[in-house]
């Protein structure tokens, strides 16, 4: 057991020193700039592929994935606005929201 404790102490010291060293390395511009550029290049390729696929669907007169996503998002926004309206109407009618009604009932 003492052997394990000794090894563990050594490991902790090594881990801490290595983590600090790697953090310093990962922060240098020599690592960051090329990594960022490589990632961006891969992403650009993927974005271009997405754009071309969307164009192909468009040419066939079909909605692209992006079109469908936009439509679903608009539906979500619409639902959110309806919720806004419902809550405003409840307040204007003096009924309050569900919890407000609960509070009202409690005080009555």
């Amino acid at each position: 057991m003492m052997l394990w404790d000794l090894w563990k102490k050594g490991f902790d010291a090594w881990e801490d020193a290595t983590a600090r060293y790697l953090e310093a390395v990962l922060k240098t511009s020599a690592v960051l700039v090329p990594s960022g550029a490589l990632l961006s290049a891969i992403l650009k390729l993927k974005a271009e592929r997405e754009r071309m696929t969307a164009q192909l669907w468009g040419a066939l007169g079909l909605p692209s994935r992006r079109d469908q996503e936009r439509m679903l998002h608009l539906l979500n926004q619409l639902q959110s606005r309806i919720t806004d309206l419902e809550l405003t109407m409840q307040q204007q009618r003096g009924r309050g929201t569900e919890p407000e009604r609960m509070l009202e009932n409690r005080s009555n």
Partner: peptide
């Protein structure tokens, strides 16, 4: 440091 790396293009990532 990563977020401020100029070569990391956020717009491209979102487009992709």
């Amino acid at each position: 440091a990563w977020m401020r790396t100029p070569s990391f293009d956020v717009d491209t990532m979102i487009a992709a």
